[in-house]
């Protein structure tokens, strides 16, 4: 099918975007279009107004400083995937992106579009949870920054108000040489994840876990962290017992069930993939630290 008619707006700046959003009603923002365009072609969504952000160049950037990495909302997934800087400072980003759709969809798809669509299985939403992302929402006359936990309200739902738009996403930056892993199970390459587990870890000189983060997506309506399990792992020696304890914690999370995949199967995958992710992250933390 084809999209129903709409009035097309193509602002060239953040200020112009904010002005349009303050005036129009029944409006959708078009980022990379890899989710919204199918929904419009199917007429699941029939907005009266479409605001195309692809001309707003100031929304496409990657900026790194000591404590964090900031991404403009319209930064393309392929740009992140190819970034030599991120390959060094945040290698889990290109790794996770290899699971996102296909090369043709990543050429258009953006980090901000993925976060605002907020699919529970989206890899970039998982990474936002993992990196304690801060999301900067702009509107005419101001902006506010939300922590990830307040940005994601529920299934496919965010806290972004109708006159607001995502301007920037900030990830916590982990120290050089940290361990990382992204484990995903999907029916085919590029399909929606049934379960994905990400892990970042740093090791103390003694070899014990210094800091660790584990995020789970595809399992609940929103991606989440294994906060309590992470806390209990800090200071522990890595090894089979620790991996198994974390995997057990992951298997006890509340899981969605649908006509294809039962909650129990998602919990099973969460257990298996958590074991693998933590083990792999610990092992490459050791190697990267030694290198």
């Amino acid at each position: 099918m084809k999209p129903s008619p709409f009035t097309y707006h193509d602002p060239q700046s953040v200020a112009e975007t904010a002005a349009i959003l303050s005036e129009v009603e029944d409006c959708r923002l078009l980022a990379g279009g890899q989710s919204l365009m199918p929904m419009m072609n199917f007429r699941f969504v029939q907005p009266s107004n479409l605001v195309d952000l692809n001309g707003v160049r100031e929304l496409a950037f990657v900026r790194e400083d000591a404590g964090r990495i900031a991404f403009g909302a319209m930064t393309r997934q392929r740009t992140l995937e190819r970034s030599a800087g991120l390959r060094e400072s945040c290698p889990i980003i290109p790794l996770a992106l290899s699971h996102v759709g296909h090369r043709q969809t990543r050429a258009r798809g953006t980090i901000g579009g993925s976060l605002c669509h907020f699919d529970p299985s989206a890899e970039l939403c998982n990474l936002a949870a993992l990196h304690e992302a801060e999301l900067v929402l702009a509107r005419r006359g101001g902006e506010r920054a939300l922590p990830f936990a307040e940005f994601g309200v529920g299934y496919l739902t965010t806290a972004v108000e109708p006159d607001e738009f995502l301007r920037e996403v900030r990830f916590r930056r982990w120290p050089q040489g940290h361990g990382y892993a992204f484990e995903e199970f999907a029916m085919r390459h590029g399909d929606f994840a049934i379960c994905a587990i990400s892990c970042l870890v740093t090791l103390a000189p003694s070899g014990a876990v210094d800091d660790i983060a584990i995020a789970v997506s595809g399992v609940g309506a929103v991606p989440f962290r294994l906060g309590e399990a992470e806390a209990s792992a800090r200071g522990e020696r890595p090894g089979h017992d620790l991996y198994r304890a974390l995997a057990t914690a992951a298997s006890k999370v509340e899981a969605m069930s649908d006509s294809y995949v039962s909650a129990g199967y998602r919990q099973h995958l969460a257990r298996i993939l958590t074991y693998r992710a933590v083990k792999s992250a610990v092992e490459n933390a050791g190697m990267r630290a030694a290198a």
């Binding site: 097309y8 279009g33 195309d52 050429a107 258009r108």
Partner: peptide
């Protein structure tokens, strides 16, 4: 130069 899906782009883009 980039391979993209032309059903997910608008002609105006």
């Amino acid at each position: 130069g980039e391979a993209v899906r032309s059903c997910l782009m608008l002609a105006v883009q």
